[in-house]
Design a protein around this nucleic acid. Structure first.
Length: 437
RNA sequence: UCCCCGGUAGCUCAGUUGGUUAGAGCGGCUGACUGUUAAUCAGUAGGUCGAAGGUUCGAGUCCUUCCCGGGGAGCCA
């Protein structure tokens, strides 16, 4: 049985009548007296393998009947068309070789609680829903990189170990760095990507970022993946245009290539099909007015200068049928590096992209051009300019107008798949009270 | 850090006003069955009721403290 190569289950509908070998794991197991049904997954798809005692003999039939959930096997048989099969085919087994046993597999076809499933995340990954989510995550990541590549962006990998806080001193994971004191896990690659932009024009980083926030919500992870493009000679309007085209491209790609997975997850495809530019834009001031008009106890009205909370973002995002930009926030509640609006210096040229029913997926801004203003902002934010010498150099030597943004991969995957929690959008999530497995 | 909810069989849960020997479904195991789709049927094993202390004739149930988990807020992507 070791001579002919294995074929993918995905390819079986094109091989009706052929005798093939497949290898994989048993996902469902139904044995009758002289007939056994084994549903086998190989990563590309699933197929029902039909084992008949008359065809394979007593010993092989008993071995097949004894296979438990998630045991692995190699099966050889004939691909048969069958109208009862979801894929249209099944495998009439001629011989079968168990590979790895699977006694007491803890995850059953019945319901389980979140805590139990997260405790068994390494096994939960094998279930059909997780399988679909991870394939969509892959498609999102690949689509992002394809889009940016086609737009002339160079991938620019930024450091994960950094010497100081990029945006603030709290919320950082610290570690010892030889004799040089503390190092911190990056909570953004943005400042470094600005240096890359000055060299390559259009760059992006794509990697894990770390936030030691004590957040316990369905939107937060302590370790998450973010893509952060940065482009020279792009202003605020150009920045928003890039964002809406990128997100639309990603969603369209998922609809095109992962429709089966989205359907399995019961995602409302019409909501995804509406994701096309241009996205509506409202200002922070507009947002406050809309909130005031609909204020409730859970979503209190805000006075100018207060930041939007999660309930406000959900409310605003639900006012539109596609993602919406909320732009021009007060400078005081935003990061130090954001460019003031020349027409109104108390607000900055930034925007958050809120996805319907969810909230922020992208945050971005035009960056400060002028070295003196940047230095002043560092002081106002209580940051030590000495730690930012290299960042100030970027303005000292050939500063250009530039903009960038960060998109959270898990949040994008969550919204596209319709999941309820970001921890399912990454293979192994890192949350406040769980680091196992 | 704050607020809310939960912890009973491997899993998901029920357990009345405090009352005798703690229950169900699923899963496991044994057996039957040649077309099953979460197969069905019969039988069977399986419990430190999160922990400690307290009240009581009597605690899964009431009280106190602690531990663990879930959701939300703040903060953020």
């Amino acid at each position: 049985m070791s001579e002919s190569p294995l074929v993918s289950i995905e390819s079986l509908p094109r091989r009706i009548g052929a005798t093939v070998r497949v290898g994989g794991w048993v996902t469902h197991h139904r044995a009758k007296g002289k007939l056994a049904f084994l549903v086998v997954r190989d990563g590309t798809g699933t197929v029902q393998c039909v084992v008949s005692k008359a065809d394979v003999g007593d010993a092989a039939f008993d071995a097949a009947s004894a296979l438990t959930i998630e045991s692995s096997l190699v099966a050889e048989g004939e691909v048969r068309a069958d109208p009862r099969s979801p894929s249209g085919v099944e495998l009439g087994v001629k011989s079968l070789r168990p590979v790895g046993a699977s006694p007491d597999y803890p995850i059953t076809p019945k319901e389980h609680g979140d805590a139990f499933l997260m405790e068994h995340r390494h096994l939960w990954l094998r279930s059909s829903r997780q399988h679909a989510v991870l394939r969509i995550r892959h498609e999102v990541e690949r689509a992002v990189m394809d889009f940016l590549h086609d737009e002339g962006f160079i991938r620019f990998d930024t450091p994960i170990l950094t010497p100081c806080a990029a945006e603030g001193t709290s919320n950082l994971f610290a570690t010892e760095y030889f004799d040089l004191g503390k190092a911190y896990l990056a909570q953004t690659g943005q400042l470094y990507v600005e240096a890359g932009m000055m060299s390559l024009g259009r760059v992006y980083c794509f990697g894990p970022t770390f936030r030691a926030e004590k957040s316990k919500t369905r939107r937060h992870l302590c370790e998450f993946w973010m893509v952060e493009p940065e482009a020279a000679f792009v202003d605020h309007d150009g920045n928003l245009d890039l964002q809406q085209r990128m997100f639309s491209f990603v969603v369209e790609r998922c609809l095109e290539r992962r429709r089966a997975e989205l359907t399995l997850l019961e995602r409302d495809l019409a909501a995804l099909e509406r994701v096309k530019p241009p996205f509506p834009r409202i200002t922070y001031d507009d947002a406050l007015a809309r909130i005031a008009a609909a204020a409730t106890e859970e979503m209190p009205a805000l006075s100018w200068g207060e930041d939007l909370g999660a309930p406000h973002e959900v409310f605003l995002s639900n006012q539109f049928d596609r993602p919406v930009f909320v732009e021009r926030y007060p400078a005081a509640i935003k990061a130090f590096y954001m460019q003031p609006d020349p027409a109104r210096p108390e607000v900055v040229l930034c925007a958050d992209m809120l996805a319907p029913g969810f909230g922020e997926i992208i945050g971005g801004s035009q960056r400060i051009f002028d070295e003196a203003l940047l230095r002043r902002r560092l002081e106002e934010h209580g940051l030590d300019a000495g730690n930012y010498r290299w960042y100030l150099d970027l303005r000292k030597y050939g500063s250009v107008p530039h903009s960038g943004f960060g998109m959270g991969i898990e949040r994008a995957v969550l919204w596209i798949t319709g999941l309820s929690h970001v921890r399912e959008a990454i293979p192994f999530s890192r949350t406040l009270y769980r680091i196992y497995p």
